[in-house]
Nucleic acid binder design. Sequence first.
DNA 1: ATGATTTTATAGATTATCTATATTCTATCA
DNA 2: TGATAGAATATAGATAATCTATAAAATCAT
Lengths: 223, 223
Amino acid sequence: MNAHVLQPPDPDRSVAERIAEVLTRRIVLGELPPGHKVGQDLVAAEFRASHVPVREAFRRLEARGLLVSEPRRGVRVAPIAPEAVHEVTEMRAALEVLALREAAEALTDADLQEARQALAAEEESGELIVWEEANRRFHRALVTPCRMPRLLQAIDDLHQASARYLLATWKSLDWEPRSDAEHRAILDALTSGDVEAAAAVLREHILAAGRALRQRLVALGRI
Amino acid sequence: MNAHVLQPPDPDRSVAERIAEVLTRRIVLGELPPGHKVGQDLVAAEFRASHVPVREAFRRLEARGLLVSEPRRGVRVAPIAPEAVHEVTEMRAALEVLALREAAEALTDADLQEARQALAAEEESGELIVWEEANRRFHRALVTPCRMPRLLQAIDDLHQASARYLLATWKSLDWEPRSDAEHRAILDALTSGDVEAAAAVLREHILAAGRALRQRLVALGRI
DNA sequence: ATGATTTTATAGATTATCTATATTCTATCA
DNA sequence: TGATAGAATATAGATAATCTATAAAATCAT
């Protein structure tokens, strides 16, 4: 019996991969809140799958820091704590700056064009989730040319965590479109070939965004 | 039937975790060479386990970069390439420096004492593998106090990769004990409270070791 | 009401079985 | 003889039914 009613069959991707993908999206979007218990049998039933690929998907998300697993007690959606925001922010700053420096010499006009388009998409976006997608596109355009798969994967994982913190903290309601002046400054520096200036702005940009997020999160905690 | 003949039963750790641990050790030590095909049924038979926890162990090691998985073709031990050495080296430099800076204010005399003991163990070691263990102890002592679990996990994973590259490149035969002057310089800087100097030396130390490793690996490739 | 005890639900794992694909072996033909 | 198409085999990925141990919930006795 072919089991994949909801998802397209797609023989090139394993069931575990597809489950991991859907669960990732739900966690990042906040549909599954922090601390939420994710029962393997429930997920298996939903995806018309057995518990084996579900457990494999759990292991993937655990490695990415989206799920936490307690022995004999199953898995839960990772909590959102100010310390974790700080951690992810600092790691992003360190690794994205590294990636940008490594990408710089390989950076083509097409890459810069992609970043410009992402920036335009940010400025057009009226909704947080749309802005966040463009934001990720922008950052990714700058680092992808470094061609370091392990580094890029680590940055992607951290970005996912960041996006989750952002969406959980600023609900679309009270979010207002931001100027993205820093993104523009990074692009200008890169266009004029000043990689170090771009790296410095990128670093401060990530840290500032992290600080804002952390403050807001602490404030929410006090309410 | 209780299945655990070789490993102690230990109900607190899952079968998957124990398999992952043993496979990790084998890959790091080079007992399983790069490119080696790891058959799930073979591993399952060896551990007297079913293929389910074996696959979970595979997912863990895949996330750590020790295994690579091709759909429908199973998993292989990750290759060792000069580009990967460069990548891991740069990531380690970035993240360990971050961790050291964050750890600095929490660094106790006990931590420094542990680092000193590790340094002594390095200098006493006549064998590469013993030295490597002490080396990891040293680096870990400096970063652990930062209390950032995600960062520490990432550093640990990178260290494992580094250790694998080191052991694969310098077979114990042609390795000679090294002075570890840089480790001593880091310790001296920290003892005198100069965190920035320690961070600078740590960074250069990691990068220099990475360069040496990479050069040797490229040379081996040319033979 | 509360603490101890039973019940229930479920995580983790096994075993047998199934399908699809990669690989290997073999036989055929140029 | 050598390349290649096709059959046979091995195995990855997955299912389903079942089992044990434990954590959580419900029940009962005090």
